[in-house]
């Protein structure tokens, strides 16, 4: 006699969101599921998608990354082609860090030009991230929204700037990443604020702020899990795909420090550190992962079943 399993049935369904692609490219659709991640139950029309970060501006790469992506420093278009073409990234997260005043301060129009260049270099879907400086981003996002000749997602809209970012996205038909600092209520509040502006819900993904392994991962884990459970339980404002940017994994000493011999090879360790962070995000319910190491793309895509 076979055992009857108590498989939960949820009333809600995660909204399907598509990151549009350029001509000849493959758009990325995530969401649409009505069940918890990694399980054969319910419907999972779309698998989680793994993308890669392409970053402008100077950066100091840890050992595990310098060998892999070091050759592409200063060549965002080349890096974008490589990520989407050879490394299997299904989308790109173009971080315009180079526009930050502390990072050399590329001008806003230079930043916008990089966006055009990357969009022309590959038809892969693109999320464009700001530089993190409030004042620069306030000029950067409208410029990017105008410069992008095909729809992208802008990252990110938060409580302080959501009118500006969402306004720019609305005007040119882009989507937004809705950001909040590891708090399920703030995540919902952001989506309600966007809804009040009339922003289309199927052009919003949630970024709950991803802590790196060993440095706040557990908070992110539970927030993502709760966002997913709330969405599946019928809370429409939280029934959205979740994006986890794994960049913070590379801020951990364990991922970068070559001096500790008892920790094992720093290249393997760094890569595992990012991979582990990503696997925990997938287990919690993340739909979009942004990684920095090419090997993570394959590893995490392999784990990202439908």
């Amino acid at each position: 006699m076979s055992v009857v399993l108590p498989i939960p049935v949820f009333p809600g369904r995660i909204l399907a969101v598509t990151l549009p692609a350029g001509p000849g490219g493959t758009p990325v659709t995530v969401g649409g599921q009505n069940a918890l991640p990694l399980l054969p139950e319910g419907e999972h029309p779309n698998a989680p998608a793994v993308g890669m970060e392409v970053r402008t501006g100077p950066q100091e790469l840890p050992p595990a990354l310098s060998g892999a992506i070091g050759p592409f420093a200063g060549d965002p278009a080349g890096m974008a082609r490589k990520c989407a073409g050879d490394w299997g990234a299904r989308f790109l997260f173009l971080s315009l860090a180079g526009c930050h005043p502390d990072a050399g301060g590329q001008s806003v129009s230079e930043g916008a030009a990089v966006v055009r260049e990357v969009l022309s270099a590959t038809p892969a879907p693109v999320i464009v991230g700001g530089c993190g400086d409030e004042e620069v981003d306030a000029r950067l996002f409208p410029a990017v929204a105008e410069a992008a000749h095909r729809p992208v997602f802008l990252s990110y809209a938060e409580e302080k700037n959501y009118r500006l970012v969402a306004g720019a996205a609305l005007a040119y038909g882009h989507g937004v990443v809705s950001w909040s600092p590891i708090d399920i209520n703030m995540a919902k509040q952001m989506n309600l604020l966007l809804a009040d502006l009339g922003f289309p819900p199927d052009r919003v993904v949630i970024d709950p702020l991803t802590g790196g392994l060993g440095y706040g991962m557990e908070y992110t884990y539970s927030i993502v899990e709760r966002i997913r459970l709330a969405g599946l339980s019928g809370d429409a404002a939280l029934a959205r795909p979740v994006l986890c940017h794994l960049g913070d994994a590379w801020k951990a000493r364990e991922a970068t420090d070559a001096s500790e011999a008892s920790w094992g090879d720093v290249v393997a360790r760094g890569q595992r550190w990012e991979e582990t962070t990503g696997l925990a995000c997938l287990a919690a319910g993340a739909d979009l992962l942004v990684c920095r190491h090419p090997a993570s793309v394959a590893r995490l895509s392999g784990a990202a079943w439908r």
Binding site: L213, G214, M217, E218, W263, G264, T276, A280, A283, A303
Partner: peptide, 29 residues
């Protein structure tokens, strides 16, 4: 995946600290 998803005991053949340190850290988190 089994650390967050209900594994109570895992037997691994790897003794590579580059693999065990991230796993033990995930568990600690």
């Amino acid at each position: 995946l089994l650390v967050p998803k209900y594994g109570s005991l895992l037997v691994l053949d790897s003794a590579d600290p580059a693999e065990l340190l991230p796993l033990l850290t995930l568990r600690q988190n």
